[in-house]
Structures are given as structure tokens and as C-alpha cells.
Amino acid sequence: AEDTGVRVELAEEDDGKKAAIALKLWVEDPKKLKGKYKESGAIEFTFELEKETPEGVAQEMVESGFFHESDAKIVGKSIRDRVALIKWRRERSVLAGP
């Protein structure tokens, strides 16, 4: 995935079954953000794989004051990349069988 300066990782191991996964997001490189970034630490949250969109969660983070409006896109993309990888891994494990 592209280096957006925002890192998103699983906050707990994915068992491949849960509808909601726990993710952890933090800024690795504030220089890649457009708006002024106030160091706030790693943000842990749950993400409903089938119900939510990464952009929607990014917007909530903007509304909560973690990021500037102009960075909603880059945060959304970072979440989207990680979610795509998780979904791909899940599909692959289903294809591989038990």
C-alpha cells in the first residue's frame, strides 16, 4: 500500500469471523498531512467491515478533532488500504479451506 504517513494496523488478531474488527491508527509522518496535526497518539476503534466505509470513519475522526478536514481523504485511504488487505486475507483463507 502507498505510504500515506498514516499507519493503520489490527489492534487485535482477526479470527476471520467477526463483523467488526479492532483497528489502531497513528500518524507516522506528520509532514505528509496537509492540515496542522496535533500529536494525539494512537487511535483505537472498531470498524464494521460490511456496514461502514473508511471515509465515514475518517470524517468522524475529523469531527472529533483528531485531524484537519483537509486530511480526511488521506486518513480514509489509509483505513481503506488496511481494510482491503484484511478482506483479501479473509477471502484467501476461505478459499484455502479449513
Partner: peptide
Amino acid sequence: LCAAQVVHSAGRRFIVSPVPESRLKDQ
């Protein structure tokens, strides 16, 4: 280290905790 902070937004819970320095770039 600071304790984790919890921020609620429209029904979602964000838990904020310090990032280990080893996970940051340019440190």
C-alpha cells in the same frame, strides 16, 4: 506514560493511547 483517553463520537468510541517511539518515523 499517559493513561488511555476515550473519545466518543456519534456512537463510536475512540481510544487514544501513546504511540511507542519505535513506531514513529524520524525519531
